[in-house]
Design a protein around this nucleic acid. Structure first.
Length: 724
RNA sequence: UGCGGGAUAGGAUAAUGGCAGUCCACGGGGCUCAUAUCCCCGAGGCCCAGGUUCGACUCCUGGUCCCGCAACCA
């Protein structure tokens, strides 16, 4: 590892986090794949020898569980997702040099080889541990097959992680009061012999490693804390069938056959395996995977920030222990939010890869948005409104407009590039942009790379505007030359027009070269428009200064505006979908309640308890004016349905005369929702809107006490009448 | 109560301890080659309180507020 700037004279490899073969891809995933792809493309543009590799992550309990539920073989299940991913990436111009998967032969062999080495080097030991076991299902319960109580914070936790409480990684056997997620029965602990990787032996090594690690700051800082707290050795085997077998001859005990490696052991090794496959395909003369991974290659991992631990603790320790090269950089991306709220696949608040394409948007638009909207490390919000703003403002208005106006002018007046040399000032400006790209890629700032290109286009617009070549061309310059004499030091008239347009074509080309890592396809179209041969992807960044071909055809517009009503439509679709997901989930929730006898018992318990201790009366009196601020109206419940995941909450539509409001109310425990429609109620109408369980609530239904006894009217007050 | 991230103009987003920049929106002007696109000018900003410093958006302490994480959703 070295801190030489890119491009280095060593081979590099860029990876993105492995997609887990368990579900559809969405823009949260894409951010990482596109980011790594753009980074790799930028390195290529700089002349760096590099490869971009990844693969599908096929093992682990979620795949095993879901495959079982679908009644299919886990390998088939995972492969189906793998195939889908492989088809999807090119559609976003994400071009891997190799894309494999963790279940293939290369990874299986390499994983076993590396683990064997770790074992031989004395970094692996065996320990008897307590493993949860489900006597009814007659099987052991690794990781998420078991849940229980976190021994550190006392909260409910999954078998491998205290997900709701302290977020600690839990080792097998740590969870208290284990329950089987297969049968729901209490699990018992049985003693089993498992393999442990001695991570604790690497504490000093890892501290040094982090000091030299490039990438994003969160990937350096977070693990320092973990090291200070003390590293736990890492249990690397599991009692299950789906996974890579622990290498033969080293495990002992009768049930050796059942032990597979923990998914996080073989997953990162896929980075190496995938590189190896690439090397084997193109030949080691062209790209030598062993040099990269075992000698002096520059290894760059782009990951999501949730897997920093694996990439800055476990993984470098494994690499070091097995005699491999250490990563040069770990760049951890932030999350994507949708309209300011957390992306949620279960609530369908997500922009799916497939959906984006079906809407007919060009992949380069999303690539640009995701890479330039925020820093790599920052959380980035996605909304169709912001997407529109970025596309229309920067890609259409600045880049597209500059490209089109320059090339069209050049084509009409000169049938291509005017035959003069580019002016020194413009060449300097382009040189400056090239410098910005170099600097930014070394800072792992894709945003900066994109900005350097767009700012150059912006300069182009200023330049053409300032020089007004349209006033200087042959056609109508005669009239002008009478009034506007040459100002002496600068040539005015046709020669200057030719110079300006010559410069603009050069700038247009440069923008195309510089933007290629982010908008490869659009840049390629520009490349073709100016009559260049070959592909812009193969161009070197210095080609931005090379003269474009003399002649080219009439150019076309490369970016189209996104209209307002299109955005309205997309917003409506998204809202609808989120609402529908809530309703679907609610149905299954209701089914649950029916079979759950405890629910009704709970309700009676609380109603009895509620009568015994009453809240003390409030001391503070309020004025009439304070009361008047409350806009309380008579309403009628039109529809009522439960909300997914909530014990008491219901989604109501309430007619309050002037309009119908959607309200979320905690009234499910006492009232039968089916009886509610038609019932009059009292609603606080100027309550701030709130979102509860993903459902927006626009008002507050008045009800009494803990179990929410609904208030109503006894006369025939009209809907919408104010309570005074 | 936990962990992580954050707070900069109306909205969004930057700045090795050294003049707070950029985009959208807004007000004014200009251009007509260009997709009503583009260019120029203007107004408008560092969460609060301390501390370190010649100098703090930046570093330290304390506080306030926001966001994410709770069926693998990165």
């Amino acid at each position: 590892m070295s801190t030489d700037e890119f491009p280095t004279d060593r081979p590099a490899v860029v990876t993105c986090g492995l997609p887990y073969a368990n579900g559809d891809l969405h823009i949260g995933h894409l951010r990482g794949y596109i980011g790594a792809d753009a980074f790799n493309r930028t390195l290529e543009t700089l002349g760096q020898e590099t490869a971009y590799v990844s693969g599908s992550d096929m093992h682990g309990t979620p795949v095993a569980v879901n495959a079982e539920q679908d009644g299919v073989d886990p390998a088939d299940f995972a492969l189906e997702w793998h195939d889908q991913y492989e088809e999807t990436f090119p559609k976003f111009n994400v071009e891997f040099d190799n894309y494999g998967h963790t279940h293939d032969e290369t990874n299986t062999q390499l994983t076993q080889e590396i683990v064997r080495t770790l074992d031989e080097e004395g970094y692996v030991y065996e320990k008897e541990i307590q493993v949860a076991y489900d006597p009814d299902a007659d099987q052991y319960l690794p990781d998420r097959y078991v849940e229980g109580t976190c021994p550190y914070c006392g909260k409910k936790a999954r078998g491998d992680e205290c997900d709701e409480g302290c977020q600690r990684h839990l080792e097998p056997g740590e969870v208290e009061d284990p329950t089987s997620t297969i049968t729901g029965n209490p699990a018992e602990y049985r003693e089993r012999s498992h393999k442990f990787f001695e991570v604790s032996a690497f504490a000093d090594y890892l501290t040094d490693f982090l000091d030299n690690l490039e990438g994003t700051s969160n990937a350096r800082n977070q693990p320092r804390q973990w090291i200070e707290d003390g590293l736990q050795d890492w249990c690397i085997t599991r009692d299950m069938d789906w996974g890579i077998d622990y290498p033969n001859g080293t495990a002992d005990g009768d049930d050796e056959d059942d032990l597979v490696l923990y998914v996080w052991v073989d997953a990162p090794i896929e980075y190496v395996a995938s590189t190896k496959q690439y090397s084997e395909r193109v030949g080691t003369d062209e790209y030598d995977w062993e040099r990269v991974w075992k000698e002096d290659g520059d290894i760059v991992h782009v990951i999501g920030r949730d897997i920093i631990q694996h990439h800055t603790i476990f993984w470098p320790a494994m690499l070091e222990g097995a005699g491999y090269n250490a990563p040069r950089a770990v760049a951890a991306t932030g999350f994507i939010t949708i309209n300011g709220k957390g992306l949620s696949t279960s609530r369908n608040r997500a922009i799916w890869a497939k959906e984006y394409l079906e809407e007919g948007f060009h992949p380069d638009l999303l690539r640009y948005y995701l890479t330039t909207t925020g820093g790599l490390q920052q959380d980035v919000d996605f909304s169709w409104d912001a997407f529109q703003e970025t596309v229309n403002g920067e890609l259409v208005g600045t880049v597209g407009n500059f490209w089109y106006r320059s090339l069209l002018f050049a084509y009409r007046n000169y049938e291509g590039t005017p035959e003069v040399d580019v002016s020194p000032d413009v060449a300097d400006r382009i040189e400056g942009a090239i410098g910005d790209v170099r600097e930014n890629v070394n800072d792992y700032s894709l945003r900066g790379v994109g900005q350097a290109a767009v700012e150059l286009a912006q300069f182009g617009n200023e330049y053409i505007q300032r020089n007004e070549p349209w006033k200087l061309t042959d056609d109508d310059s005669e009239a002008r030359s009478a009034s506007e004499e040459p100002s002496g030091d600068e040539p005015r008239g046709p020669e200057q027009a030719a110079q300006v347009i010559r410069d603009c074509v050069q700038i247009a080309k440069a923008v195309g070269v510089l933007l290629e890592p982010i908008t490869p396809e659009k840049s390629q179209q520009l490349w073709a428009q100016i009559g260049e041969e070959g592909t812009v992807a193969d161009a070197h960044i210095e080609d931005a200064l090379e003269a474009p071909p003399r002649n080219f055809d009439e150019p076309g517009e490369l970016f189209a505006k996104i209209e307002d009503d299109r955005v309205d439509e997309l917003n409506a679709k998204l809202e609808e979908r989120v609402a529908a997901a809530g309703a679907d989930a609610e149905e299954s929730d209701t089914e649950h309640d029916d079979t759950d006898g405890d629910e009704s018992a709970d309700a009676t318990d609380t109603s009895e308890a509620a009568t015994t201790d009453l809240e003390a009366l409030a001391e503070d009196r309020i004025g009439f004016e304070d009361f008047q601020e409350l806009d309380i109206r008579v309403g009628r419940i039109e529809t009522a349905e439960g909300i997914e995941g909530a014990d008491d909450l219901a989604r109501l539509e309430v007619d309050i005369g002037l309009e119908t409001r959607q309200v979320v109310a905690g009234i499910k425990q006492l009232h039968d929702l089916e009886q509610l429609p038609g019932t009059k109620c009292v609603l606080l109408a100027n309550m701030e809107p709130a979102e509860l369980f993903g459902v927006e609530s626009n008002g507050m239904i008045l009800a009494a006490g803990e179990e929410a006894d609904l208030l109503t009217t006894h006369g025939d007050a009209a809907l919408g009448e104010k309570i005074k």
